[in-house]
């Protein structure tokens, strides 16, 4: 008779031990993540000042210099990628939600988008090299934008579709009943109603591509000088971090950290912004 309470006790103890182990295991991985953030801020912030944003890189081995060209370059490369990728993605998203719906073709397109999203970024880089760099004969910011556009398209297509599917049919009917053609209904009623969600998708995609390095290695390539011409090789923040971190110069390591702060801040800001927008949509419903 005595064994019964003993077993109950053992079960209780086992439960407590297990829960404690789970909590410990869950907390351990937060440590490196916390350290990454702390180290970036600690190492990087001390090197950040106005000059760092305004100056060009110093020649190899010399100290000082800044990342003005990489900052401008990232904006140009990502900007062109958005210009290429967003219209294609939104129209494809419209096809999936308004025309394709549950058809076989639409399903194949969705699978293709998933496959495209899973293609390793380095492979995207090879493809952009073959499609743009080789025919042009030289590296260029534009080829980098093509690579990044390929990476953002699947993200924006799927969010656009999801968001437009949430737009109630009664709004489409209201517009059609006023004698508005379907295409105008889509562009002027359906798309504007889902615009906040589509914007969220674009922001998430931009946050992802802004930090991409691998697809730029043999497309945008990098450039020690300032250029605004997208047909020339161009520098970008992630390229600076990679090149400086793997260089033998201590001053460049310092600048790699400082650049990492700038890039992290940009990406976090975009992600937080997209989340705030997403919350707003959820709140409206």
């Amino acid at each position: 008779m005595n064994t019964y309470p003993a077993r109950e006790n053992w079960r209780r103890i086992k439960n407590q031990i297990a829960v404690i182990i789970i909590i410990l295991l869950a907390l351990i991985p937060t440590l490196p993540l916390f350290f990454i953030l702390a180290n970036i801020i600690h190492e990087g912030l001390r090197s950040i000042n106005l000059d760092f944003f305004l100056h060009l890189p110093a020649p190899p081995g010399e100290t000082g210099g800044g990342i003005s060209n990489a900052l401008v370059g990232t904006f140009i490369i990502v900007g062109i990628a958005v210009i290429i990728g967003v219209p294609i993605s939104i129209l494809a998203g419209i096809y999936l939600s308004e025309y394709g719906k549950d058809s076989k073709l639409a399903e194949i397109i969705r699978i293709s988008a998933d496959v495209l999203q899973g293609v390793p970024s380095i492979v995207i880089g090879i493809v952009a090299y073959a499609w743009v760099v080789r025919p042009m004969g030289h590296f260029s910011a534009f080829s980098g934008s093509v690579a990044l556009a390929l990476m953002m398209i699947p993200v924006v297509v799927r969010t656009t579709e999801e968001v437009l599917r949430l737009v109630p049919d009664i709004l489409r009917e209201a517009s059609l009943a006023l004698g508005v053609p379907y295409w105008r209904t889509v562009m002027k009623v359906v798309l504007p109603t889902g615009m906040v969600g589509v914007t969220t998708g674009i922001l998430i995609a931009v946050a992802r591509i802004a930090g991409e390095t691998a697809p730029l290695l043999f497309t945008a390539f990098g450039n020690q000088f300032m250029t605004l011409n997208p047909m020339e090789p161009m520098n970008a923040l992630p390229l600076v971090i990679f090149n400086y971190a793997t260089s033998p110069y201590e001053d460049w390591w310092r600048q790699a950290w400082a650049t990492a702060v700038v890039l992290t801040f940009m990406v976090l800001l975009l992600n937080i912004l997209s989340r705030i927008l997403a919350k707003r949509i959820a709140g409206e419903k």
Binding site: W257, N271, I272
Partner: peptide
């Protein structure tokens, strides 16, 4: 809030993970 922070950290570019790994 923990999930939120986790997801933000998942968004940090891989080159920055590389930088951190290289030095720490």
């Amino acid at each position: 809030p923990i999930s939120f922070i986790m997801e933000l950290l998942a968004g940090i570019p891989s080159v920055i993970y590389g930088l951190w790994a290289l030095f720490y």
